[in-house]
């Protein structure tokens, strides 16, 4: 018995050690970012490397905010990501509702078409989409980044799966009570799909918040940039002033980490169902 317990304790210690080792690998770059962001320009290029800044300063943060409309970029990010997420959820849930619950004549065919479109990588539509946005005069406007959320096949797919599992009895009951089709959608089906919608909301938010290539092509105006783009353009302008870049990186991470901390439960389920990107 004693021997067995010993073995168990040793195993636990081994697990903790591995956990800490991987944790150290994960966290070192972030600590380095944190430490660098509090350095002055001169302290950046000192050898040997200062692990902890000898004279910590807030210069980098001050400079980043004064040289770049960073607060504005944070606002833009929230505006774009928020709208993107809301439009995705509304459009996808409406389509999923029509496909699963109204069952109009070519519902299955349209659903298959949606699924097939998931096979096409986004890079294929990059150039023509750029041309279309240009023709619509939408380049350098928020809608150019938000509007593509109208059609997100993966979101429709996920919600169709979910809504199929809702028994039709609920609809019949509501219909007998005299509810119209819009009421049924908003008051019966949507609440019953709640957890899938919550999951989709967090994963869509995260994807849109961190999106890079499409916003990069669409938004070149400094005042319209998202946080990711602002960071990218900081890199272009002050490519060697890493204290500024690290301060900017840190700032860009804060909102998404807060959201993660609040909605961790939905991230977990999102991981299991939302693994494949559209």
């Amino acid at each position: 018995m004693n021997h067995k317990e010993k073995k168990k304790i040793l195993q636990e210690i081994g697990t903790y050690l591995t956990a800490v080792l991987i944790g150290v690998i994960v966290i070192i770059p972030f600590l380095w970012m944190l430490s660098t962001s509090f350095k002055s320009k001169g302290a950046l290029m000192q050898i040997p490397v200062q692990w902890i800044p000898k004279e910590p300063s807030l210069d980098a943060y001050r400079t980043v905010f004064s040289r770049f409309p960073l607060l504005r970029a944070i606002g833009n990010s929230f505006l774009i990501t928020g709208s993107y997420t809301v439009v995705t959820i509304l459009s996808a849930s409406m389509a999923a509702f029509a496909i699963t619950k109204i069952k109009f004549p070519c519902a299955e065919g349209i659903f298959k078409l949606y699924l097939a479109s998931m096979m096409i990588p986004t890079q294929v539509t990059l150039i023509p989409l750029f041309v279309i946005m240009n023709k619509l005069g939408l380049i350098n406007t928020y809608p150019s980044v938000i509007l593509p959320s109208l059609f997100r096949a993966f979101a429709v797919f996920m919600l169709v799966q979910q809504m199929r599992s809702i028994p039709n009895d609920f609809m019949e009951a509501a219909r007998i009570d005299g509810a119209g089709i819009f009421r049924i959608y908003a008051k019966v089906i949507m609440p019953l799909t709640g957890s899938a919608i919550a999951t989709l909301t967090v994963t869509t938010f995260m994807e849109s918040w961190n999106d890079y290539l499409w916003p990069l092509l669409m938004l070149s105006d400094k005042n319209k940039m998202t946080l990711t783009l602002a960071l990218n353009s900081l890199n272009g302008q002050y490519g060697t002033e890493y204290n500024l870049l690290m301060a900017g990186s840190l700032i860009s991470m804060i909102p998404i980490i807060i959201i993660y901390a609040c909605a961790q439960k939905y991230f977990k389920t999102g991981l299991m169902s939302g693994g494949v990107k559209g």
């Binding site: 389509a95 109204i102 539509t125 023509p128 059609f151 096949a153 429709v156």
Partner: peptide, 22 residues
């Protein structure tokens, strides 16, 4: 007719942002 308003946003999105670009 019932389904149309529900399908409209995503169908429009599909045509403009997926089908046409392809």
């Amino acid at each position: 007719i019932q389904a149309l308003p529900f399908m409209l946003p995503s169908m429009l999105g599909m045509i403009i942002f997926s089908f046409l670009p392809i």
